[in-house]
């Protein structure tokens, strides 16, 4: 700014003094914008100090970390950090931390694993988290299933409820993309006459309460068409993916209307396979978790949804 105060706007041309603000004691810059004036307060030192401090912080960061672009390359920083490598390293630390208990699940000796309470105390909460993030969307948070998705906390199984059976189901899925997936299809019986369909539907609907007429025409139809998969009298238990029709476990619904839909369209539920997303040990831990879920439930009535 001009060194001669007398030339400054707003200054008294004789003394060079400008209007002094009575509150702060500072003079004004002499401007007046529709009544707004500005004080000529000296630069606050603290602002400069803060600026210096943040600049120092930044310069240090630029030296240590990747920071400035150089056309086709950039400065790598003396620490040579790479965010992806750092994340992987941290993941490796976590894997090491887990290794103590998780690696034991690589050996699927479920009885031995199950008998170690200290191990279970670590593994089951971890398995629960895996279950909640991966399985609960379909099977419910407590394994209660839902329309189209089987209950897991009961004692009825499509493919077997022993931990090793469950582990295999998890590895390969059911009707999934895995080359060795478990495969099960309820064929469509749309070729049946309407009458027959409704008789069979009523018959199957009555099965659960044991009220189905074993001598009717529907029983014959059932024996000829269905028993191969669902067992004599629909008792199931063949562990071929076809459910028993006399127990409490129901996937899609066992009222006559739903059974009719099942018969008309067939069913082929899909359970994804997990061997790409979860490690063998994690899958074994989950299998044990699911098996224990059902053990704990004992004979809880199933079909109840969460």
């Amino acid at each position: 700014m001009s060194t001669d105060p007398k030339t400054l706007p707003g200054a008294d041309p004789h003394t060079g003094n400008r209007e002094i603000d009575p509150v702060t004691g500072y003079d004004t810059t002499g401007h007046d914008w529709g009544g707004i004036k500005e004080l000529n307060t000296p630069f606050p030192k603290v602002a400069l100090a803060a600026l210096a401090l943040t600049v120092i912080y930044s310069v240090i960061a630029w030296i240590l970390l990747p920071a400035w672009p150089l056309g086709r390359d950039y400065t790598r920083g003396v620490l040579g950090l790479d965010q992806q490598a750092m994340a992987e390293a941290r993941l490796r630390n976590l894997t090491d931390l887990r290794a103590g208990w998780l690696n034991r699940f690589e050996d699927p000796d479920f009885a031995a694993l199950s008998d170690d309470p200290a191990l279970m105390a670590l593994a089951m909460p971890a398995a629960d988290r895996l279950f909640q993030d991966n399985c609960s969307a379909c099977h419910g948070r407590a394994g209660g299933g839902g329309p189209g998705f089987p209950v897991l906390h009961d004692t009825y199984w499509l493919w077997g409820g022993a931990p090793q059976d469950i582990a295999l189901t998890l590895q390969v899925g059911i009707n999934a993309d895995h080359p060795e997936t478990r495969w099960a299809q309820m064929p469509a019986f749309d070729w049946m006459a309407d009458e027959e369909l409704s008789e069979v539907s009523d018959y199957v609907a009555a099965m659960r309460s044991g009220e189905a007429d074993p001598d009717g025409a529907a029983a014959t139809l059932f024996a000829e068409n269905c028993a191969a998969c669902h067992g004599e009298g629909g008792v199931g238990g063949l562990m071929n993916g076809a459910p028993s029709l006399v127990d409490d476990a129901v996937i899609y619904g066992q009222d006559a209307d739903t059974v009719m839909t099942t018969l008309l369209n067939g069913r082929q539920g899909l359970m994804p396979y997990w061997s790409d997303r979860l490690s063998d040990a994690e899958i074994n831990a989950l299998a044990l978790y699911v098996a224990r879920m059902s053990d704990a439930a004992g004979s809880t009535p199933s079909g109840a949804t969460e």
Partner: peptide
């Protein structure tokens, strides 16, 4: 690939059903 098509359909039509 994490879920089945059926699940997505059910979930999108009514998330609270699943």
């Amino acid at each position: 690939g994490k879920y089945s098509d059926d699940w997505h359909v059910a979930h999108l039509i009514d998330p609270r059903s699943v």
